[in-house]
Amino acid sequence: MELIYALAIGIFCACGVWLVLRPRTFQVILGLALLSYATNLFIFAMGRLTLNRPPLIDPTAAFDASRYDDPIPQALVLTAIVIGFATTALFLVMLIASRGFTGTDHVDGVEKKE
C-alpha cells in the first residue's frame, strides 16, 4: 500500500513538473494542479497511512489517542487545498488576461522565434 502511495505521488509529481516546464499557459495550469495533488498527498503522508481511524472522537468510548489518525496534516492539507483553489483561479485569470493583452498563450507573453 505504502509503495503504491509513494509511486502515485511520484507519478503525479513527474507529470506536474513536466507540464509546468511547458511553454503554454494552459499546460502550466494543469501542471500546477497535478503538482498540488502530489504535494498535498505528500504532506498527508506525514501522518502515515491509517485505515478506518478518522479523527472523529467517539464520546461514548473510552479515550485513546491511538484510535485516531493524526489530524494535523489533515488540517494543513485542507488549508492547502483551499488556497490552491484560489491560486489556480488567480492564475487562470492572469492567463486569460495575458492572452487578451498579448495575443498569445505563451508563458512569456511572446511567441518564441524558432
Partner: peptide, 23 residues
C-alpha cells in the same frame, strides 16, 4: 524537461516511501 520531471518524481516518491516506512 522529461529528465527533470522523472528525477523530481522519483525523488519525491523515494522521500514519501522513506517517511511512510518509519514509525
Amino acid at each position: 524537461d522529461a529528465t527533470l520531471a522523472i528525477l523530481a518524481g522519483a525523488g519525491l516518491a523515494t522521500l514519501a516511501y522513506a517517511v511512510l516506512m518509519r514509525p
